[in-house]
Amino acid sequence: MNVLRRTVLLGLLVLAGFLVFTAAQGKQKTGLSLSEKVRNLHDMNMKKALLRFNGQKFREYVKNAPRNYSVVVMLTALAPSRQCQICRHAHDEFTIVANSYRYSPTYSNKLFFAMVDFDEGSDVFQTLRINTAPVFMHFPAKGKPKGPDTMDIHRVGFAAEAIAKFVHERTDVQIRIFRPPNYSGTVAMITLVALVGGFLYIRRNNLEFLYNKQIWGAVALFFCFAMISGQMWNHIRGPPLVHKSKNGGVAYIHGSSQGQLVVETYIIMFLNAMIVLGMVLLTESGTQSDQKRGRIMAIAGLLLVVVFFSFLLSVFRSKAQGYPYSFLFK
């Protein structure tokens, strides 16, 4: 066991030394041979799944001719001063792909993942004539990259699965994405449970509030409002908050019946809640012992129901073409 560990350590040391050496030598040497390149890349890959190239390395390993491997390169700008928010996400996703590939059984010397930061290799951006970031490019083993070798992130996005699919299309290497398990949800759940549990424990002598029907009722109603105002649709489709309408104003209501805006759903939620409040007031007004109070409640309830229902109806009418009915106002 010990011997094994020692040899491994020794090997690593030698490798590291060799790497330093080659890096130092790199400048003088004009070109590495193919086997050297592959070996270097492989060694680098041992340490990191995603290779980080500067301009000079990029030319060495990706641009220059003797190659029998393809490289998928992400050109990006990670420096905070560049203020590229997407680049960070893209980098995370790309790292996931690279790691999944690195530790997958299909790993070989035929495909490498690399990235070039704008601040380390701006010349790369110039030679490729790229002025946006991030860009995913595939450099095939033979020949130059063509049109489809650049991933169309506007259309397919840059989720790890999309990148893996792109890689599969270009190189026939199938990568199964292994995301590092996301513990944040679990942690949040545990803290929530712990908080609730702790709260219950502290209040253990006074648990009446659990029997408070008002609270339970409010929670249930809130859930219903959220659902019937289409929050689930928002969650799945992710619509914008508001639209900019053509004449410069802001549209809060989506024009067609097929879509909705986030603000719109909040408005609907409010309208529904007001109608419900009005109906509850109306019903409760009958149980009041005080006559005057009952009367006020009844009037308020009536107004709430009628006004907000007609308002809801008019919003509905504005979305449904040709809907003929309206109440109180159009």
């Binding site: 029907k213 339970w216 009722g217 249930a220 109603l221 219903c224 409002f225 019937i228 309208l271 529904n272 109608i275 419900v276 109906m279 509850v280 019903t283 229902f309 809801l312």
Partner: peptide, 13 residues
Amino acid sequence: ACSFPVGIWYCIK
């Protein structure tokens, strides 16, 4: 759709 939450409210109550 706007009035069934009232029913829930009274059922819970």
